[in-house]
Computed example of a mutant assay.
Amino acid sequence: MSATSRGHRNAPLTPEGRLRLCLRVDAGRPIAHVAAEAGISRRCLAKWYARWLAHGENSLTDRSSRPIASPNRTRPESMPRMLRPSPPTTRPCVTSRSS
């Protein structure tokens, strides 16, 4: 098994296992049954199966979960201002309340 197909600790299946599941579905088994036997969601297997039909075996490799765009990401010009130390407070720090 190559380094890219090992997957992370919680990965349901390797690309080879995903291919075996797709082949079972392609042979006529219901997606829900094959998914239940593998312990994954029907939606996940349906996504893998559609990807395999459209793009072939190489499409079953692990994909990055990083978003394509981050519209709410902090702008680089704001970073220096955010990293500056806070100004000192004018009130003393109170550690306990008196009754």
Rank of each mutant, 00 (worst) to 15 (best):
A11M: 02
S41E: 05
A54G: 09
G39Q: 03
A54D: 13
I68M: 01
C93A: 12
W52S: 06
L45S: 04
G17M: 03
V25T: 08
R75W: 08
S59E: 06
A27Y: 13
S99A: 11
R9E: 09
C93E: 07
L53N: 09
E16G: 08
I31S: 10
P87D: 10
I31Y: 08
S41F: 06
E16P: 00
L19V: 03
R18V: 11
P88Q: 10
R18M: 09
S5E: 09
P88M: 07
M79E: 04
K47W: 12
L45V: 06
R6D: 02
P85Q: 06
L23I: 13
A35L: 12
R29L: 08
R81D: 14
T89Q: 09
T89I: 04
E77W: 04
Y49Q: 09
R18D: 12
R97H: 06
H55M: 06
L21H: 08
T61G: 03
W52A: 07
E16H: 13
D26L: 15
S99N: 08
E57L: 05
V94E: 01
S70K: 14
I31A: 14
R42H: 04
N10Y: 14
L83C: 05
P71G: 05
R29T: 01
L23N: 03
P71S: 04
R43G: 15
P88T: 12
K47T: 12
R6N: 02
V25A: 04
A32Y: 00
L60I: 02
T74R: 15
S98N: 07
T74A: 12
A32M: 01
N72S: 11
D62H: 14
M82H: 04
T4H: 13
P71C: 02
R73W: 00
T14Y: 10
T95W: 12
G7N: 07
P87F: 11
T95G: 15
M82W: 01
R63V: 15
P12L: 14
P67Q: 12
R66L: 10
N58T: 01
A69S: 14
G28P: 05
R9L: 11
T14F: 07
A54F: 01
